[in-house]
Design a protein around this nucleic acid. Sequence first.
DNA 1: GTGGTTGCAAAGACTTTGCATTGTT
DNA 2: AACAATGCAAAGTCTTTGCAACCAC
Lengths: 157, 157
Amino acid sequence: MAKATRSTNDAFARFKAYLREQKLKSTAQRDAIVEVFLDSAGHASVEELYGRVRKRHPGIGYATVYRTMKLLTECGVADERHFRNGEARYEMAEKSHHDHLICERCGKIVEFEERRIENLQEETARRLGFELRGHKMELYGICQDCARARRSSAAKN
Amino acid sequence: MAKATRSTNDAFARFKAYLREQKLKSTAQRDAIVEVFLDSAGHASVEELYGRVRKRHPGIGYATVYRTMKLLTECGVADERHFRNGEARYEMAEKSHHDHLICERCGKIVEFEERRIENLQEETARRLGFELRGHKMELYGICQDCARARRSSAAKN
DNA sequence: GTGGTTGCAAAGACTTTGCATTGTT
DNA sequence: AACAATGCAAAGTCTTTGCAACCAC
């Protein structure tokens, strides 16, 4: 079950408000998808969301998940991103200023925030004549656990 | 026609060497695709490459373009990247240390390099226990031309 | 001649859309 | 009752794969 934190409540409320504004309807399916998404701590793919929603709501179709995630993106609760293979993943939009550090071996995704980098991004854009609107940054590397695993397997050879 | 710069020559040679190593064959199609790619100043999509190669080599198929770009990626001449919509684009891998600034309005892509950002990325990864292997950074904004265009169209209203 | 390569078409993965039915308001 | 939402299947993208004909070595 979703633990209702401050931010998930806000997000849920924002989604509901968006539906009202746009004269769209609340449905059990939409609620279920949004709950699962908010519960998923970000970086959920459509496939993962579909899988989890299906447990709670077996009849649901892929199309509804896609459509709902599009709504969530429109209302600013979710952000759509494309990682290495081009498949879409969604994350909470709230945490606006964070980026990703991804382990190339185990796929672990760590979020981080580094204001100094963002300042330099702003400065760089300005230098090139752009008005900065957003950014995307992913660092790829090997995490501690995997580095350790590699060392011990190397030791065997 | 391709102006044969130092780096395109190197890249072409590297590709040829890779073919030899792997006991693969040189063909007119592969040569044409690689030339067009090297000529394209990076960020070419498969569709664009296909279109340009077709002028020179009308019978060519999409599959050959995909297969050749995969080879170019394997041998380290090209890098495959996914921008906002998940479609693959290829760029020269040589220029290892540069990132992208993309206009959200006209799609213009500007490359830049900012060593100070890279240093901070390295530091950040280390702080989080990662051994940094690579990164991807895209800044999104509005370019000068588009900002100007927006201002003048706003003036009409 | 051998074995990789090509172009085509078919198949795949991911996503969107059309439509009759169902559900909210 | 009106009209949006759903689920399904069909259609769309982008990419990969199977295969017979073909070509480089």
